[in-house]
Structure formats: structure tokens, C-alpha cells
Nucleic acid binder design. Sequence first.
RNA 1: GCAGAGGUCGCCUAGCUCGGUAGGGCGCGGGCCUUGAGAGCCUGUGUGCGCAAGCACCCGGGGGUUCAAAUCCCUCUCUCUGCGCCA
Length: 420
Amino acid sequence: MLDPKIIKEKPELIRKMLKDRNSDFDLDSLISLDAKRRELIIKTDELRKKKNTVSVEIAQKKKSGQDASSAIAQMQQASQELITLEEEQKKTDSDYEKLILTIPNFIHESVPIGQDETANLEIRKFGAIPQFDFSVKDHIDISQNLDLVDLERAAKTAGARFYYLKNGLVRLNQALIHFALDYLEQKQYVLVQPPYMINQKSMEGAIIAQDFQDVIYKIQDEDLFLIGTSEHSIASMHSDEILEGKDLPIRYAGVSPCFRKEAGAHGRDQKGIFRVHQFEKIEQYVFARPEESWKEHERMLAVAEEFYQKLEIPYRVMLLSSGDMGKISAKTYDIEAWMAGQNAYREIVSCSNCLDFQTRRLKIRFRDKTNEQTQYMHSLNSTLVATTRTLVAIMENFQTKDGHIGIPKALQKYLGSSAI
RNA sequence: GCAGAGGUCGCCUAGCUCGGUAGGGCGCGGGCCUUGAGAGCCUGUGUGCGCAAGCACCCGGGGGUUCAAAUCCCUCUCUCUGCGCCA
């Protein structure tokens, strides 16, 4: 959510952002609803003031034994008027609220303006692309040959985009999680295993309504939604709280399964475990002081890059364009890992600064002294590792001529072996 | 799941029986006093609208009764205690 004051005072900033995002958001409706909302506040406040005055009068008259009936009549009339106005106000407020929650976030000045991913900028590359003296397989062939993944039976029991991991890949998945947790803990992150289901209010704090439909699974007859990432749980963890400035930044390492509908992804990455409904993810989630959030953003990216360097996975860092970026992010870097079986770089990390967009929705504030004005802090999130995609990268990049999989040195002690 | 007790301003607490402007303490800010510090005293301390003066709102959420609700009624939710069930 954006600051209502900025929308009111500098609508031209919002218009530019909407244009850069190719958004068809109806700003004029929002502005007129806001005007109507404020007009109603003034009117109802006046009526309440009248009621308060008359109420005191009634109390005094009753106390001294005078007749209060004319004052009571006034009171009844004012109450009636107020009920009508309050209904209108409720409706206006709710319309306004719905609309303001769907405006996308501001865009940082360093973000390239463009329609889609073709306008993304490559920032840097790391690692040499592996060369093979045999014909390269993709992760589907490799995992089928080694009995590491059963997609057919998963399709039978759950549907497309599900999988049974088996044998060494179960261990490798756990090894990645274990390694990632050790890595972030050593960097002083607070480890968090959050609720895997959260209520609607919390979910709305973390994402924009329309994403519900495309991404989020709902639990039947309960006010509960399966999280799409631990970001959703951790964002709302401090909702309605006022934290102490001295505690910032707070860096969380979230570990959880992630559940995604992947609606609208028909046909893309249809096979294998690259794009699935369920996977494990270790996430960086940071609450920072506003003036430090851009520094934190670069820091989180560096933490993620170092992780893939340790895993010996070649990657490139992309700066997403205004048209390719998520609505809640002001700036997003993606890390794309080289995947030998696809002969391409594919997204494995997304690192975003959301400014005060989430914290404003969730009322997460801080202050340095108890009587100081509170401020919204900034929130940032970045993948450290989404296990299935990294498993794909390892399987494809570390495949051997005899059809097995080598293991990156950093993972060997967690796996207990150097090959699968 | 059942029963009981609770949720009041950043924190603690009074007020609820019997409806009439939510009081006190702590913490923190500003001021007075002081050579300085401390103590003491004064004052401020959440949200909204407004250029401002100021006004309105805020007692876990929602609804009801009433001229008027922290207070009475209903409902939901969370916490605690006991019982039950359970990996």
C-alpha cells in the first residue's frame, strides 16, 4: 500500500509509476473516493460533536432534576442522521480500501523502464559454463534413470506438477536445506519455521488481491491459506507491532514448504520438477530502517550470490524491468542459474525491496524513543534457495558421463557422499 | 472438544457490581528548579480530519439494547488454568 498522503499531494508521481508499469489502475476513482471519504469524516465528526455536547446537557439536567426531554429528542435526531451518514461512510471507506490496496508499488530510479523481460538488464555473470564430452541430458532423464523422481505416480495421486522425490534426491534436498540454514545462521540470521497456513488478513498484508487467484491455495471452509513462501508468514509476523529502532535491521531466515497454484503457467516447464506446486524454500526476509533498505537490498543479493558460488553453480544477475517486476516490489534482482540440460540461464532467486508497501498494510512500525512519532520500516525479501530448482541445476550441471550426479563440495559433508 | 478466568493508551494497573468526558504508575520527551547531577514539581506521550485553532475516534474484533456503553446483552477471536483427546 502506498502512503495516502502522497497519493493526495503528488498524484503525478503515481501516474508516472502506473505508466512505467503499464498499469491500467484507475487513479481518478481513487482520488475522488478519497475526497468523498474526507468530506464524510468532517460531517460525521460534526454530528458526533453535537451528540457529545447534548449528552453532557442531558446528564446535567437529570442530575439537577430538570426536564431533559427536548435534549433527548435532539439526541435521537442526531443519532438518526449519524446512522445514515455512517452507512455511506462505511461503504466509501471499504471501496477506498479495496482500491488503494491494489495500487502497485513505486519504482526505484535505477530500474529500467520497459514492457516485459526483454527490457531486463544483465548486471554480471559468475562461473564458467560447464563443457561436456558426451550428450547432455536434462534433469528429467537423469532423475528417471537413477530412480530419483516419480512424476507419473504423482500425477495419478495429486495431479500435474507434483512429484515424489526418491532415494538420493531426498537426501540431497535435505542437504540443501541443512546447508542453507547453517549458512544463514552463521551470518547472524534468526532462523524461523513459520506457520504453513495463515489467515486472509495476513495474506493480504503480504500480497495483492489478484495474486490470491493465481498463486494461493485456500483451505475449504476455514479462514486459512497455504503460504506461497515463508515471506507471507514472516511479513505478517510483526503486524500491528511497534518495534524498537535499535533492533533493526531484523534478518530472518525462513524455512518452509511453498505451495503455488501456478495458474496461467500452462505449457511452460510442464515436465519435471522445475515448476511445481510444492517445494521447500529457505528465504531471507529483512525488516530495515528506510534509510538503510537499499544497502540491505544489495547485501541480500550478495548473500545469495555467495551461496551459489559455494555451490559452484554458474549464474547471472538480472535487474528486472518495470514491466517484469512484481507489483509489490520497487526493485528486483533475479539470479538465474545455468542449467546445462536446457542450455540456458533460468530463474532461481528473486531479491526485492518492497519499501514500506507491506509494512504499511500490516502496520509494522518502529521508533527509537517511546514518545517519538512511529515510522513504517521497510521490508525486503530474497530467495536463498528454492530446493527443486537448485536440484535441477545440480543434476544438470554436475551430471557425469556414466549417468550419475556429482555433488558440489559444499554439500558433500551434508549428503555423506560425493555422488548419486 | 468441555469448563472456568482473562484481553483497558509503548508497558503495568484502576474503573465493570449499580451505564453519564478512561484515572493512576512506569518508561520516554520538553520545561521549571539546580554550579552540575539527582530528587521534586509542571507538561506532553495512540489514530483520523484540518493550513491552523481545534474537533472526532481509541478499552481484543463485530453486532445489539439505550438519549448515552470500557461498563448491560449476543457473537467471534486470542491468552491462561483445569479436564478430555492425541503424534
